[in-house]
Simulated assay, not measured.
Amino acid sequence: MVALNEVPRRSYTDGPTPLEPLRRLSAELGGPQIWIKRDDQLGLTQGGNKTRKLEFLIADALNQGADTLITVGGVQSNHCRLTLSAARVEGLDCHLIVEEDLGPEGTALGPAGSNPPEYTGNFLLFDLLGANSVTVLGHGADLHGEAEILAEKLRAEGKKPYVIPVGGSNPIGALGYVDCAVEMLDQFAEAGVDSSTIVTPSGSTGMQAGLVVGLHSAGSDIPVIGINVSRTQADQEPKIVDLVDSTARFLDLPPVPRDATTGLGDYFGTGYALPTPGMVEAVRLFARTEGILLDPVYTGKAAAGLIDLIKSGRFTSEDTVVFIHSGGVPGLFARTQAFA
């Protein structure tokens, strides 16, 4: 087995993120005891789950002698924001290639560059953090292909680029959540939390896959339920399994059982980043009961899934559920019309 402390790593957060009980929300829903893991409070600009992944990815980039980062995502990508922030901390150049969102009912929002029409949310932060370039492409563009083209161009100019995949979700990035699983188990023991289930947003799969592998390596059988933010269960679960398997191989761990992977696809609505009534209700409920802001793309939809699972009787009053807040709140301010 490869020990995590043997893998190169940077540090962007001072200590573990908080694990907090949500007593008012739990009482409001009348179901299990709900706790929240505050990964919205991770380091780098405005925090979020990608920071854990970047600690390993940036260390790998630096070990390879990189002077430039290239990454991809949506126009409101939390991952792009945090990659750019890490680049600023490390003194690296950073280029972003992003695609516009879909509009209502899956329609395009307009020509490349038209979304967002104003500098809002994460897109504003790309500018404030001084991205070396931001290329906006139409929805469905080959982002990774464009990233490789840019990397070749920069190499020809004498630069040493390092390309990070969408969401930082590869075996190196997933190590951030292998480590988080151990952190959480220590917090559970310290707080006397007998967790029956962990519920997390599931998008590019790095967070969920890392948690599954980390719990498996620690001998824990706590299930991790992913609430998909962009795909059906049939489409998402093979992606999670693939990253679980490749991360376990990277760490030279025994294979992880297939039934450790669950990605529920009933709550993403008509597409990635498109609002749903359940998301709006969940964001309002968390804010009203606990003073906690969720984002509309990831945690809002995951919380909507959690609320529905509670209301449908998936959990009893004897259960304890830990919800992971993956951050992304800047995106809330780019999608205010969903709450109008």
Score class of each variant (00 low, 15 high):
1 M>G: 10
2 V>A: 01
3 A>S: 14
4 L>T: 10
5 N>S: 14
6 E>K: 10
7 V>T: 08
9 R>N: 08
13 T>E: 09
22 L>C: 12
23 R>E: 15
27 A>W: 05
32 P>W: 00
34 I>T: 12
40 D>C: 04
44 L>H: 09
46 Q>M: 14
47 G>W: 02
55 E>K: 05
55 E>L: 08
56 F>V: 01
61 A>R: 05
66 A>K: 11
76 Q>Y: 04
77 S>Y: 08
78 N>R: 00
78 N>Q: 07
83 T>Y: 02
94 C>Q: 09
98 V>R: 05
98 V>S: 00
102 L>A: 11
103 G>C: 04
114 S>G: 12
117 P>S: 09
120 T>V: 15
131 A>M: 01
135 T>Y: 03
135 T>Q: 14
144 H>A: 11
145 G>H: 01
147 A>E: 05
147 A>Q: 02
149 I>Y: 09
153 K>D: 15
158 G>E: 02
165 P>K: 06
168 G>T: 01
176 G>F: 10
178 V>Y: 06
186 D>T: 09
200 T>P: 03
204 S>M: 02
209 A>W: 04
211 L>T: 11
212 V>L: 05
213 V>E: 02
213 V>C: 12
223 P>F: 08
225 I>M: 08
232 T>N: 12
233 Q>D: 12
233 Q>R: 15
237 E>C: 03
240 I>E: 13
244 V>H: 13
246 S>D: 11
246 S>Q: 12
251 L>P: 02
253 L>E: 07
256 V>N: 06
256 V>Y: 09
258 R>I: 11
259 D>T: 15
261 T>F: 06
275 P>V: 13
279 M>D: 13
280 V>S: 13
288 R>H: 14
289 T>G: 11
292 I>R: 11
297 V>A: 11
302 A>N: 08
311 K>N: 15
312 S>F: 12
318 E>T: 13
320 T>C: 04
321 V>N: 12
323 F>H: 10
327 G>F: 07
335 R>S: 15
337 Q>R: 08
338 A>E: 15
